[in-house]
């Protein structure tokens, strides 16, 4: 029996807060999925027309193209400082930064920690894919022990490069942040958990509560040299052992 289009109900569509621009991400990479989730949250909270997104340097450098919202593209690592400037200038705006692990947890270490410690009323989305995607797969501060990257061709040796940094746990030692959580996207349940966390992180800002950080474990099939399916499995079975999921701070 062929379906009559007139009787069909739309159950899935592009979030209204996203533009028609095509994503620049590789197949199987979680950046696209995460962008969709943020778009849905902006829709649900009906805040896109008072939101300013921060596009970092990294694979998501083009993030200013995805949202029907104002954006600022910023220097590598400085997203939380720029977010501070925007939010202090116009507290009525909803400001979120979207940053890779190199951006947030390496070159932007100082900016990331101090914005959290000042309790800036912003929302930070921290995409932990354990690698520098944009520049061709170099080691990130979050790269796992023994993980091969172009700058750790024999695998990350902790004697030379230290251990993967658990940045959210560091932020969680501070007294000021309102909400710090680590989520993942490797299966439907975790996609739903991430959606809830991101919604909460934006709602906190809308309510004027303060700083929220959502770390999202993400995949990089291209630079991990894995298929998208293998990549999801790798996150679920291996990465989550080093970076355990769940809330680290919830003072909401």
């Amino acid at each position: 029996m062929s379906a009559n289009p007139k009787n069909m109900v739309k159950v899935f569509e592009r979030p209204a807060s996203l533009t028609d621009a095509k994503f620049t991400y590789c197949p199987g990479c979680h950046h696209g999925l995460l962008t969709r989730i943020i778009g849905n949250v902006l829709d649900e909270l009906d805040i896109a027309d008072r939101t300013v997104g921060i596009a970092p340097v990294g694979c998501s450098v083009f993030a200013y193209l995805w949202y029907k919202a104002d954006s600022q593209q910023v220097p590598h690592g400085r997203a939380c400082a720029v977010a501070t400037g925007i939010k202090r200038a116009r507290p009525e705006l909803i400001v979120f930064s979207y940053q890779g692990d190199g951006d947030f947890a390496s070159i932007g270490t100082a900016e990331s920690i101090h914005a959290a410690n000042r309790g800036e009323n912003i929302t930070v989305i921290f995409v932990n894919n354990q690698i520098y995607g944009m520049t061709g797969g170099e080691m990130a501060p979050t790269t796992l022990v023994d993980q091969k990257t172009t700058t750790t061709p024999l695998g990350r040796d902790p004697k030379v490069a230290g251990y993967p940094i658990r940045f959210s746990e560091m932020i969680a030692t501070l007294d000021t942040p309102i909400y710090v959580t680590r989520q993942a996207l490797f299966d439907t349940k975790h996609i739903m958990d991430t959606t809830k966390a991101i919604k909460k992180a934006f709602q906190n800002q809308v309510d004027g509560k303060g700083y929220s950080l959502v770390e999202v474990l993400s995949t990089c099939p291209t630079n991990w040299r894995m298929s998208p399916v293998q990549s999801n499995k790798h996150v679920g079975e291996t990465v989550t052992k080093v970076f355990p999921l769940g809330d680290l701070v919830d003072r909401g």
Binding site: V52, V74, A81, A89, R90
Partner: peptide, 17 residues
Amino acid sequence: AESELAAISMVYGAAGA
């Protein structure tokens, strides 16, 4: 600010706003 790098980036955000 935590550094001059951060201070000028805050200026960027506020100027952009």
